[in-house]
């Protein structure tokens, strides 16, 4: 059974049709990168998936059932800063775990683990206003990983990070995916990032958005961005996205 099944998904904002009859499946353990032109509705799709937006038509199923955020363990890393200003870094990270009622022991262990993963151990008691933009995004990433989700949705999470950290977190994400086989849907406009990490790539068209191409990324892990095959794949995706 597919982890995520999207059937004939249609979503409009007023007269503007954003998603037009989109259908695809994400299998259990997939690492799917969705790429497409800016403003093509990638975020709208993820927001519809977690029921932040009501859809006009079609259906989204998780494990064959309608999405239930209490039942399905989903974590969503948004594009916007989503850290809560009244909570410390540590408390922000523990937010999702507390909602999901993790035991105290597990809560503390996971907090330590993810703080280390994003390199914020020394900033555990800091408040968001004391952190840089990249650190804020790392807090959101840590918060999502902490709940050990079955389905991880990531909406351009590394867009605001510096290069070095981005590369580190990309490798870290690949490592976590290989270890846990968590299903990941990763939205990005960075083609190199998509080719570097994904196991499957889905290219969307401009609005109204349709699936232009959906294919398996055959390059073996770990990947090297300077290798000929990597560059070929990157060019292939670039050509698919081009609307000019």
């Amino acid at each position: 059974m597919s982890k995520v099944e999207v059937n004939h998904l249609t979503k409009s904002f007023g007269s503007l049709k954003v998603l037009d009859d989109i259908s695809f499946q994400v299998n259990d353990g997939d690492f799917l990168c969705i790429v497409g032109p800016t403003g093509c509705g990638k975020t709208t799709f993820l927001n519809s998936l977690v029921k932040l937006y009501d859809i006009d038509d079609g259906e989204i199923l998780i494990n064959g059932e309608e999405v239930d955020l209490n039942k399905h363990s989903i974590a969503y890393i948004m594009q916007e800063y989503s850290t809560m200003s009244w909570l410390t870094v540590k408390e922000n990270i523990q937010f999702g775990m507390k909602v999901r009622k993790f035991s105290k022991e597990k809560l503390n262990r996971k907090t330590e683990e993810v703080l280390k993963m994003v390199g914020l151990e020394k900033f555990a008691d800091y408040y968001p206003e004391q952190l840089s933009a990249s650190m804020l995004q790392r807090v959101s990433i840590a918060r999502a990983f902490a709940v050990e989700p079955d389905l991880l949705l990531m909406d351009e999470p590394y867009g605001q990070l510096d290069l070095e950290l981005r590369f580190r977190l990309e490798d870290e994400l690949i490592r976590i995916w290989q270890e846990t086989k968590t299903t990941i849907v990763f939205i990005t406009h960075n083609i190199e990032e998509a080719v570097y990490m994904s196991q499957r790539i889905m290219v969307l068209t401009n609005k109204p958005t349709k699936v232009k191409e959906d294919f398996v990324n055959p390059l073996p892990l770990p990947r090297n961005v300077t290798e000929e095959k990597f560059i070929e794949m990157r060019n292939k995706v670039t050509n698919l996205i081009k609307w000019w």
Binding site: A75, M78, M84
Partner: peptide, 12 residues
Amino acid sequence: PVHIWVARTFGA
């Protein structure tokens, strides 16, 4: 609303 969304997606 982003904070509300975060809570909702965690199942609050």
